[in-house]
């Protein structure tokens, strides 16, 4: 195999594959934008989705200290699809063909500094059977790959587990039968 052939058949496909894998997580069709307006001590944060229907996204925002959610969930957001975790200063939304959603906070600041927003395209199809938070996208940044406490990748990415478990089950069954035989004998 000459150099030209190696280049064509091995290196170029490999490079394209690597580029494809790098770009894969950011190829989702949805795009989430965040706008904020602050009036007196109240910040109104609005998330908009720029995508063609059908679309579906999950959004989570971590709020910095100095900002507070109201005690009543309805005062925070009128969305039906929201959950607030006051202990961890987080709020999450589910949007399905809903172009925007908003919520309010009280506190001081510009409503931007210290906030961390992540979202994930829930309709992105992939043959991958163990997707994790590597598909999460930090608003205005790159897909989340680290510093995430609830990565589900480790818990799920156990290729070959089924086969392994089946083999163990066979061995265990065999040992159990031998033990039973000896006992009965």
């Amino acid at each position: 195999m000459n150099m030209d052939s190696i280049l064509k058949k091995r290196i170029i496909p490999a490079v394209i594959l690597i580029i494809g894998l790098i770009l894969l997580p950011v190829m989702g069709v949805s795009l989430v934008e965040r706008d904020v307006s602050v009036l007196d001590n109240t910040a109104t944060i609005k998330f908009s989705v720029d995508a063609e229907e059908p679309f579906s996204v999950g959004i989570v925002e971590t709020v910095p200290e100095g900002w507070n959610f109201a005690d009543n969930d309805n005062s925070v957001s009128s969305s039906k699809n929201v959950q607030i975790d006051r202990k961890n200063n987080q709020i999450a939304f589910f949007l399905s063909n809903e172009e925007s959603v908003s919520y309010q906070l009280t506190g001081t600041g510009d409503g931007k500094t210290g906030f961390k927003t992540e979202w994930v395209d829930l309709l992105y199809l992939t043959p991958e059977t163990s997707e994790g938070t590597e598909r999460w996208i930090t608003l205005g940044g790159n897909p989340v790959a680290e510093d995430n406490e609830h990565s589900d990748l480790d818990a799920k990415a156990t290729p070959g587990f089924g086969i392994f478990a089946a083999v163990i089950a066979f061995i265990a069954t065999g040992l159990a039968l031998i033990a039973v035989n000896r006992k009965e004998a």
Partner: peptide, 11 residues
């Protein structure tokens, strides 16, 4: 779906 997604996003 909302409960599942929001709960997942919040961990």
């Amino acid at each position: 779906v909302s409960d599942a997604v929001c709960g997942y996003m919040l961990g």
